[in-house]
């Protein structure tokens, strides 16, 4: 369960978001809708602990009953998927995925998880290629699976489909929904597109 209480966001002197509160349960998807520039991405950055230095934000975040605000970003257990897939260009697709699998598993298990993911992505035979050989839609899928392979306790998605064309958008959306369901973690999707919002099928918060 992810709980956000009284989140407020200010830039310089302007108030962007005032006292926003919500809860997202396991396996649930919450969609946050609003025009660009309103601070949606900053909310996600605040939750993941990497908010830009020129913004000031306050608010409590609880993930499975632990306060996150004092935890360093890389220990928060938050998965964030952004508009740009951010696949590491100097590592192969398999290496990108393997990078995310926690090393508390044995090496064999880690590799098996990557092999399963590649099968899931239908990229068999391409796993040793560099990510720039993939199309935009494929990159977005790899990025999602990479995020999930890290086994986050909560998933944040920031306009993941905005760079894709209409048909690719529908199929990628279905793929994402299915994966979220399997992962069974609280998920927040941020978008400015009403189609995306309704397609995700969860509750919607308008900013």
């Amino acid at each position: 369960m992810l709980i956000v209480r009284n989140f407020s966001l200010h830039s310089q002197s302007k108030c962007l978001i005032d006292s926003l509160s919500f809860e997202v349960d396991k396996g649930e998807i919450l969609t946050i809708m609003g025009p660009s520039g309103i601070g949606k991405s900053s909310l996600l950055a605040y939750i993941s602990g990497t908010i830009a230095s020129d913004l000031s934000a306050v608010g409590d975040i609880l993930l499975n009953d632990t306060t996150l605000t004092s935890v360093v970003p890389h220990r928060r257990g938050i998965g964030l998927m952004q508009q740009t897939p951010l696949l590491f260009p100097h590592m192969t697709i398999a290496e990108n995925l393997l990078f995310a699998v926690p090393n508390l598993y044995e090496n064999k298990t880690r590799h098996q998880k990557v092999i399963n993911a590649i099968r899931d992505l239908e990229l068999q035979g391409q796993e040793n290629k560099l990510p720039d050989t993939l199309s935009g839609g494929q990159q977005a899928r790899v990025a999602l699976l990479r995020t999930l392979l890290a086994e986050p306790k909560c998933l944040l998605i920031d306009e993941p489909f905005s760079k894709l064309d209409a048909t690719l958008r529908t199929t990628t959306r279905e793929f994402v929904k299915e994966k979220i369901k399997q992962a069974n973690i609280p998920t927040i999707v941020v978008t400015h597109d009403p189609d995306d919002a309704s397609a995700m099928g969860g509750s919607i918060v308008h900013l």
């Binding site: 993941s48 970003p73 890389h74 998965g79 964030l80 990078f99 995310a100």
Partner: peptide, 24 residues
Amino acid sequence: AYLLEANRLNHKPAINFITIKLAM
């Protein structure tokens, strides 16, 4: 953002600084 993403995926900021940021 690449480094931040790496730190979210794999909780080793010091190593990621070398293998992701400096490598890129």
